Simulated assay, not measured.
Amino acid sequence: MSYPFELGDETLWDAGYHSGMLYAALARGAAEFLKVPSGLTPTREGSCEVSPAAFSAFTARLYDMYASTRNDVLHGLADGLLVTSLVLAERAGRAIVLRPQHEASLREEMTTLARSMA
């Protein structure tokens, strides 16, 4: 069973059920913490619809929080959610501009993760 993240008729990520549900739950929690909508809407069909503008804003806000601190715990907590969100944003045609000091490491993580996000 899967939990696809869709943009119209396009599947951005055909996540495994548990991976997709956990990502969506983490995104909801982070969006609440950041006081912005996540841009992700669960559907009755068992998928998640991605609103490109709102999701891009959520991902940018998540990245801004990540980039504005040197707190290792906060980086560790946000890293998986951020990298997954960056991959989805890129697939939705809404790539986030990364600061030079994060570009190489986050791009490497994105490339590795994207291979698993078929």
Rank of each mutant, 00 (worst) to 15 (best):
M1S: 14
S2I: 08
Y3K: 02
P4K: 01
E6T: 10
D9C: 08
D9P: 06
E10P: 04
T11K: 09
W13R: 04
D14C: 06
D14N: 06
A15D: 06
G16N: 11
Y17C: 14
Y17T: 11
H18D: 14
S19F: 07
S19L: 12
G20W: 02
M21A: 15
L22V: 13
A24W: 05
A24N: 10
A25Y: 09
L26K: 10
L26N: 12
R28L: 14
R28A: 15
G29N: 13
G29E: 01
A31S: 09
E32N: 07
V36Q: 00
V36F: 04
P37S: 13
S38V: 03
G39C: 09
L40C: 08
L40R: 03
T41Y: 12
T41P: 05
T41S: 15
P42W: 05
C48Y: 01
E49I: 00
E49S: 14
V50D: 01
V50Y: 09
S51P: 00
S51G: 12
S51Q: 14
P52T: 02
F55R: 00
F55P: 00
F58V: 02
A60R: 15
R61K: 15
R61M: 12
Y63S: 05
M65S: 13
M65D: 05
Y66M: 06
A67R: 09
S68H: 10
R70F: 10
R70G: 15
D72M: 13
H75M: 09
H75I: 04
G76W: 03
G76N: 08
D79S: 14
L82R: 01
V83S: 06
V83P: 04
L86F: 00
V87K: 07
L88D: 07
R91F: 05
R91N: 06
G93E: 00
G93Y: 07
G93A: 11
R94D: 10
L98E: 06
L98V: 01
H102K: 03
E103K: 13
E103V: 01
A104H: 10
A104F: 10
E109D: 13
T111C: 11
T111Y: 08
L113A: 02
R115D: 11
S116D: 04
M117T: 04
M117N: 07
M117G: 12
A118E: 05
A118V: 07
A118N: 10
